[in-house]
Design a protein around this nucleic acid. Structure first.
Length: 230
DNA sequence: CGGCTTTGACCTGCGC
DNA sequence: GCGCAGGTCAAAGCCG
């Protein structure tokens, strides 16, 4: 599915999920057919309970661990309407969404302490969509704060670079954002397609517990085309 | 000065 | 058990 967002668009009307309501409405997280082999990181995996971040921070961050083979894009999003992973496999899900979880780690005097185990965790619904945009962070009406960035291997869109005859894995810069609203545990990941820097893959995780703050003008002036996967 | 970004270290889980 | 990979933390730096 895809639609166009023209520059004249006001900030998108996003649902609690952080997606335009028009989209989220029909998008049961993880429902439907395969996102055409593009929405790489959209696969949800259930994993063994893990620990919550410190400060009772955000929710699950199940990711696509595993080998590239596991992340093959040919299958549809393997989760049910609740965004619950109903497939096989595992993921590293951690976060406050965990049930009965315990303290994950503590920093005392700069020294981190090990945490105790959690019993079970509940994954936040996730979904992703691809956007053709010049700006990385789309104006979805919510305020986001970057809390991390990492270079990860892009196994979905393998592109190799050769150094001295050695095959190097394709890497992608991935940024992690968190909703700045207190008590809102929504997170989103942003990365650009290596083969097409104009394309941005945004992955939302969790749902907003508040309304978008539209006090600011739309920042994404560039027209963009959005392709939603689910 | 407060808020945000950057970035290296740390943590956790999975595959081999 | 070890190494790898992804996600998060948090100190330091930057900027308005």
């Amino acid at each position: 599915m895809s639609f166009n967002l023209q520059s004249s668009h006001p900030p998108l009307s996003f649902s609690p999920y952080g997606l335009p309501s028009s989209l989220s409405k029909t998008s049961t997280v993880g429902g439907g057919g395969g996102g055409g082999g593009e929405a790489a990181d959209c696969h949800l995996r259930r994993t063994t309970p893990s620990l919550p971040p410190k400060h009772g921070d955000v929710g699950s961050s199940g990711h696509l661990g595993g080998s590239p083979a596991q992340r093959s894009r040919t299958e549809p999003w393997p989760c049910d309407e609740d965004g619950e992973w109903n497939g096989k496999g595992s993921s590293r899900v951690k976060g406050p969404t965990a049930i009965n979880n315990t303290i994950n780690s503590l920093s005392v005097g700069g020294v981190r302490m090990k945490k105790v185990k959690a019993k079970r965790k509940v994954r936040e619904p996730r979904f992703c969509f691809k956007t053709m945009s010049e700006v990385d962070v789309l104006d979805d009406g919510y305020k986001w704060r970057k809390y991390g960035q990492k270079v990860v291997k892009n196994t979905q869109h393998p592109r190799y670079t050769y150094t001295l005859g050695r095959v190097m894995s394709c890497v992608v810069n991935r940024s992690y954002y968190r909703c700045t609203q207190e008590n809102c545990r929504v997170k989103k990941r942003i990365e650009r397609l290596p083969e097409d820097p104009r394309m941005v893959i945004t992955t939302y995780e969790g749902r907003h517990v508040h309304s978008p703050s539209h006090d600011e003008e739309s920042s994404s002036q560039a027209s963009s085309k959005v392709t939603v996967f689910w």
